[in-house]
Amino acid sequence: MLPGFPDAQPVNGLIGGVLIGLAAAIMLLGNGRIAGVSGMLARTLGLTRGTPWPIAALFVAGLILGAVLHLLTLGPIEADFAPGWGWLVAGGLITGIGTRLGSGCTSGHGVCGMSRLSPRSIVATLTFIAAGMVTVAVVNAVGGGW
């Protein structure tokens, strides 16, 4: 589909991305809030305040239902997870601390903040993408890659 990148899925990626943008737009224009998953999850668990609980909790529940809807309509969702729970535990733990410390993740800073041209979110997004690229390169170089 994309010359030079036989495994890429540019069309599904773009359509999926537009849907994610629409979802964030509905949250912004409807409820007046940022559709940031790490923040909404923390609020759902009572780790932060601010957003009314039902707004956060139903958004988080909706994420799971959206994936279920895909399974029921378009079918299976391809996914290769890391081999072994060590990657998931380490990755999850660091992601949890980092997203709270940095006040956001790919959705809040990456989608909502970058499109708002927020300098803070642009810096955060460039930082986590760079850190992710370095991490994958290091893991591959050390030989423990997956």
Binding site: V37, S38, L41, F81, A82, W87, L88, A90, G91, G92, L93, I94, T95, G96, I97, G98, T99, R100, L101, G102, S103, C105, T106, S107, H109, R120, V123, A124, T125, T127, F128, I129, A130, A131, G132, M133, V134, T135, V136, V139
Partner: peptide, 19 residues
Amino acid sequence: LIGGAALFGIGWGLAGLCP
């Protein structure tokens, strides 16, 4: 902000998952 984003990026790279 930068430290948090960097930590998140490391976790993201290890597991291939964001929140």
